[in-house]
Amino acid sequence: MNAFRLAGDMTHLLSVVVLLLKIHTIKSCAGISLKTQELYALVFAARYLDLFIHFISLYNTVMKLVFLASSFSIVWYMRRHKIVRRTYDKDHDTFRHHFLVLPCLALALLINERFTFREVMWAFSIYLEAVAILPQLVLLQRTRNIDNLTGQYVFFLGAYRVLYILNWIYRYFTEPHFVHWISWVAGIVQTLLYADFFYYYIMSWKNNVKLELPA
C-alpha cells in the first residue's frame, strides 16, 4: 500500500470521525444530508459483499467493517435518535436521491468488469459513490450557517477522493497490471463534483470568514 492510498483512507476515516463527533457528541446533524448518508450505506453494502468471501488483509477487513457500521449507524441516528433527528434539516434536504440509484444500476449492468452478480454490484457501488455527494452539496448551498464540522466533513471526503486519484497514478506506474478503468473514470467525475466546494472552502479559510456557498 502506498502513502497516497493510506492518506486517502485516513482522510476518509477522519471524515467519518468528524461526522460521528458532531452527531454523537454534539447531538446534531444540522447541515448533513440524510439522502447522501443513505446512499453511502447502500454503496458500502453493495461493494463489500465479498467481505467474508475474499480475505485481503486485516486492515482491509477492519476498514470495511468500520465504514459499514459507521454509515448504517449515522443513518440510524439521523432517522431514529430522539434528539439528533430533530436537528435534521429535512425541508432543505430535498434532492430526489432515489433517482440516482436506478441509472447507476442500469449503468452497472451495461458497464462492468465481468457480468457476475458481485462484479455488477461492485460497479454499481462505484457509480453510486460518484454521485452520492450531490444531495449533500445541494443542502450545503441552501444552508445559511455551515458549521465548521460540516465543512470539515465534506472537505475530508473530497480530500480522500483526490488522494485516491494520486494513488491510482502511483499504482499505474508501479503496478502495470493494475487498471480499473471503471473506478478511475467514476472517481475523477466524483472528485470534480467537489471542485466548486473546494474553491469556496479554501477561500473562506484563507480569508478567515465563515464558509458559505453561493446559491
Binding site: 465479498d50 475474499h54 482491509n60 476498514m63 468488469e113 462484479e119 497490471h177 493494475f178
Partner: peptide, 10 residues
C-alpha cells in the same frame, strides 16, 4: 484474466 485482479481498495 483481467476480472481476477484483486479489488483491494475500499
Amino acid at each position: 484474466a483481467a476480472g481476477d485482479i484483486v479489488k483491494d481498495e475500499l
